[in-house]
Computed example of a mutant assay.
Amino acid sequence: MKKILLFIASFLMLMLLCIYAFVFIQTRPLNKADDRDVRVEIPSGMSVTQISKLLKEEKLIKNARLFYFSVRFPALNSFLFFKEPASSGLVLKSGIYRLKPSMDFSEIQKELSSGQQEFIVISLPEGLTISKIAAILENNKICSAYDFISFCHDTSSDIFSDFKISGESLEGYLFPDTYYFTSGMSAQAAARIMVENFFEKIKEVDGLAEKSPSELFEILTLASIVEREYRIADEAPLIASVFKNRIRRNIGLYSCATVEYIITEIQGKPHPKRILLDDLKIDNPYNTYKWAGLTPGPISNPGLIALDAAANTPKTDYYFFQIADQGAGRHVFSTTFEQHKVNHNLYTKD
């Protein structure tokens, strides 16, 4: 009888060892020598079962069912990897991750539960509009262009009150910079990151952060026009001075950039190859050829050079500027219209 019991016990022990060996092998890296990155996207709401199958399809694990059980029952991980079980279990988070076939179950689960996901790097240059930024975000699968544009024009959202933003949109407040976004994030989150960056960056411009919301809005509107007009950094303050002098004398700014804004952003037409005489007659408050003073709001999202030029504008006697070197983007500045006509004749090419 003792021999039978001993045999049964030995058999059961052998079976347990075989099961343990099988499970242990199944949870080891698929290929210890394969250190390449595999991009894995875990959408929001994906179940552990679906995640397990996805990892198997991507050839990152050997056994999807075992992966599922090791997530659902932390004690199994403790038994297999000799680690303390998570007190509240494992929570796999949505996002985009870089995983390797050389990782075992424990390492993959640690990565997916960390939230340390892959970022999408986006560089937004100076002078873009809300719609152009929205298109870039959508093309990079960060958020819907429609959602982003809608949010940026929703003055009832908290972001307008939180930052005391004047105007009817976030145009101008989306600071041009390099950002690290994640796929599928909300339009609200993406916009807030840019706006928060704007209010942080303007601290670098002398006196700008201390301005009242209305003063900041006015400076921002001027900066957005300067941004679309200057090409050489040291000319931005001079262009700003021309515009301020014209505003004081109630003279139209005559900025082609404002007409382009009407055509592309308000009328929704393609960017014109050139501004025509008929375009200068468009009856719209953003048309600085038809109306004197600043536009009702920003026409672009300016960078620090344009913001500093608009906030700390030098005093000059200039009322006109004319392109002098198309290739280099250099302008010539003049005080009188007679000088401007001479410059125009000198530098205008057929």
Rank of each mutant, 00 (worst) to 15 (best):
D177S: 10
T49D: 09
F160D: 08
L6I: 13
F217Y: 14
S113Q: 10
F105L: 01
K201I: 10
D317H: 12
E265Q: 15
I247T: 01
F82S: 10
N301Y: 06
F320S: 05
G127P: 08
F105W: 02
P213L: 04
Q188Y: 07
I136F: 00
Q109I: 15
N312D: 11
V38Y: 02
T178K: 08
R65N: 12
T129M: 10
F163W: 14
L222D: 02
F7K: 01
F24H: 15
M15E: 02
F11H: 00
I159G: 07
F199D: 07
L90A: 09
S47K: 11
P176R: 08
Q117C: 05
F67V: 02
A309G: 10
T288V: 09
Q326T: 13
A64K: 12
P43S: 09
F105I: 00
F105T: 00
M13A: 14
I136E: 11
I42R: 07
L208V: 09
Y230S: 06
K56D: 03
K141L: 06
I19Q: 02
G115Q: 06
Q109N: 06
S87H: 09
Q50R: 14
R248S: 15
F333A: 03
V332A: 13
D37S: 12
N139C: 00
K164I: 01
F7A: 15
Q26Y: 01
F199P: 08
I263E: 07
I275T: 02
I4Q: 05
E138K: 03
S300G: 05
D162S: 14
N139S: 12
G89C: 12
E260R: 14
A64Q: 14
R228G: 04
K100S: 15
P285S: 07
E58P: 00
F105P: 00
N301A: 04
F321Y: 15
V71N: 05
K273I: 01
L55M: 13
L137F: 07
S161A: 14
P176M: 11
I120D: 03
C152M: 07
I266G: 02
P176D: 05
E229K: 03
